[in-house]
Each structure stands twice: as structure tokens, then as C-alpha cells.
Amino acid sequence: MSSVTRAPARRDDMTAAWFDGLRAGRLLLRACPEGHRSRPDVLACDVCGSLELGWAEASGWGSTVALAVDRSTQPATHLVVVALDEGPWLITRLEGEQVARGEDVVVRYVQDGEGEAYPVVTARPADGD
């Protein structure tokens, strides 16, 4: 349990499909006709500016770019910027075994109470899971 109040993940109109995907254990990204992938809340492709955006499933693989630790929670919360293999970065927390910057992680899905499901990451298993 966290010692701080964490507001639940809540969908809005733009992210309904994203949260539906997370609930089903799939990490979706915005996808343009050129095949670029962008974060879920963009209105135009990060790479080419296209406004024609659909959704595409990401592999869930990535590596860490930056780490921070909030020790005011029990247990401490390990925050992480993850570079997804598809290009976009995910900001979330790392669960379980610690990793160093640049090491591989994999996306998992959690749900707290009545909130929406949201992505976290764990160290990438040695067998490539």
C-alpha cells in the first residue's frame, strides 16, 4: 500500500481505446500511415506530423532512459522513463527487481481499485519471456 494518495487512472475521450487495450493486456500506440508510432495522447504524428492516426499494438519491450526513487511511499516507488522499442517513451514505475539505466524492461499491466488499468514495467526476464 502506498502512504500517499494516488489518484486512479481515468480515461478521457481521446484515450478510451488506449485504456481498453490496457485492460486487455495490450499496449497501444498511435500509428500513422507511414508506420511511425507516437505516444497515445498526440494529435499529430511525432515523426511526420500526419493527422491520420490509428492505433497499433506495441511489443511491450523497451529499455530504461532515466530512473528516480520516491521513498515517501511504502515500499519506495521506482520511477522510470522507458524507451519503447517502437520509438515512443513511456513514463511509469518499475516493479520488482531493479535495473540499471539502459537495461531492458517489459511492460506489465496493473489495476488499482476502481481505476483504469495502466502500464508498469519489470526487468526483462533472461529467457526473453
Binding site: R6, A7, R10, D12, R39, A68, L79, V81, Y118
Partner: peptide, 27 residues
Amino acid sequence: QARGVRSAETAAGLTSTTHRYALAADR
């Protein structure tokens, strides 16, 4: 009070601006 992607980040533990600056400072 966020909704959407930011609320997923908040739920994951990024409950303040300082959490985000901490990641920037770490990088």
C-alpha cells in the same frame, strides 16, 4: 486531477511535478 495518459502516470506513482523533474535531473 489528470485524466488520460497523465492519469496513468500519476497512478504509477508520478504524483507531482517533482517526480518528473527528478527523472529529468537523473538523465
